[in-house]
Design a protein around this nucleic acid. Structure first.
Lengths: 272, 272
DNA sequence: AGATGTCCCATTGTCGGACAATCCGTCCAT
DNA sequence: ATGGACGGATTGTCCGACAATGGGACATCT
């Protein structure tokens, strides 16, 4: 005999996806399905949902340590193993993490890398083609550059210049790819808009592997990147949003040309 | 005494975040940290990483059933509990799921809702302000509309019109909000670009709760939405990308005005 | 005082084993 | 063919256990 309570009372699964069809008239006739499927969500899901709610409602702020697993198990009246499975979910969602070399889990806002990597997985598994990603870049990057031009500080420009010069001097392509990523990321930071930074970061992650290929195969790619970066920095320096937008658009278009020259078909699906 | 193997051999943590500083000259002097932190990732993480790799490399395709937990435990030489924790992580990442009323887990590509909800959590926890989200919409939505104008089919237009009319007739605001979301989503589908759809979807999720507020508080919001939707549909009908872009920009700007009229401060952080 | 060693306890990571619920295929009776 | 009974397979949850380790309290050394 176990102490489990087994009350299946919980019913407010708030997973509403807004995909509701126009909603026929329910009262008069019972058209089609009378009952919706009974929901039997396992305990580990309820536990994780409960903790997630506390975190999202800011009852648990970032940095707060979570109670010990045993405590949670007692509070939820559930076995520690069950709590652990719930914690794994939250951990993978990035809502909690364990600082390296620490016992207790702490509440943490999901790091950009975390969510971006989720996005990358999704795009890879959805077999998104390179043009799709490129199109998204064409939409986002020029506007981000324009925003950056109006909001950058001198420190931003200095940092960008530093990366630009490092790229100029980079010999091995792995480093060069990293530096291109850094340039884009820093430019995003100049826009002072977390949402766009997140979106940019995801695109960059998806593109990075093939970018390495491209830079290796296309000799003139580096000089074109150097030129575009320089123009963009100049535009930022003079706070010329239109110029920044224009050159970033050129820059992104160049990427596509680079891919074409490198023999990567535009409808190639991105991969890991 | 347990049978655990405890080999700490694994070292290729490929979590490279590209945040590398310009990389000083390592060979001559030992400047700063000589050793990187020893990595001791728990077994459940390695198990989930192994399965994740198999999925991302498409060795396991979508729809494939995963082996039973016991099988996995035997293959990995770990306890079933450990496997379960790994599975929880993959489940929460959306890489595997259990079809309602089935035993085995199956490989699944993460649904848009899944990743979008992750994005929403991240933005909420990063205390992103409403203007940030709005700015991102101003960047993305008009271009999506322009793309949609060139790629829409007649079926798309019919569906959009249907939603438009449903919104026109919608009485309760919850339904109206859903329909606005549906309109945006369908418009995204017309763009035929999964990446942009994903980004749009995330933004919509973040905005939905406050949108309900706004529609309730601002009487003229509905008529403005109706007008904009109509103009956009017309632009799509005549495949006029510029017109679509222009009206969508107006439409999104209207949202901001609506928020202002509703008394929602622009730097209010989005919440659940 | 500050650095270092020692000891203990709380907590995590992992394991072994157990049992009820339930899905699924098989077999049998109607 | 339909419907019911049966048994194996698999999951959800629990119990209990133990080694490893982080963290604090305390003693010791310089």
């Amino acid at each position: 005999m176990s102490t489990r309570t087994k009350t299946v009372s919980r019913d407010r699964g708030r997973r509403g996806g807004s995909a509701s069809r126009p909603a026929e008239n329910p009262p008069p006739v019972l058209s089609g399905n009378l009952f919706e499927p009974v929901e039997r969500e396992p305990a580990y899901t309820r536990v994780s949902a409960a903790i997630e709610a506390k975190i999202l409602s800011r009852a648990l702020k970032g940095g707060d340590p979570l109670p010990a697993e045993m405590d949670l198990a007692q509070q939820f009246r559930v076995h520690r193993s069950t709590v652990r499975e719930a914690l794994r979910q939250l951990e993978s969602a990035g809502l909690i993490m364990r600082p390296p070399g620490a016992k207790r889990m702490v509440v943490s806002r999901p790091h950009v890398d975390k969510i971006a990597s989720g996005m990358r997985q999704a795009l890879v598994l959805h077999e998104v083609s390179f043009v799709d990603v490129w199109e998204a870049m064409m939409v986002i990057e020029p506007e981000v550059a324009a925003l950056a031009a109006t909001r950058r500080t001198q420190a931003d420009i200095d940092a960008l210049t530093q990366i630009h010069q490092a790229f100029n001097a980079a010999s091995e392509s792995a480093l060069a790819v990293d530096l291109v990523g850094d340039f884009f990321e820093l430019l995003g930071a100049c826009s002072r808009n977390h949402v766009l930074v997140l979106a940019k970061h995801s695109l960059a992650q998806v593109l990075a592997p093939s970018l390495a290929l491209m830079i290796d195969r296309v000799p003139q790619a580096r000089s074109r990147i150097i030129g575009a970066q320089q123009k963009i920095i100049n535009a930022l320096q003079s706070r010329d949003a239109d110029e920044a937008r224009k050159w970033m658009a050129k820059h992104v278009r160049d990427f596509k040309r680079g891919y074409e020259v490198a023999g990567i078909p535009p409808d190639a699906v991105v991969s890991v």
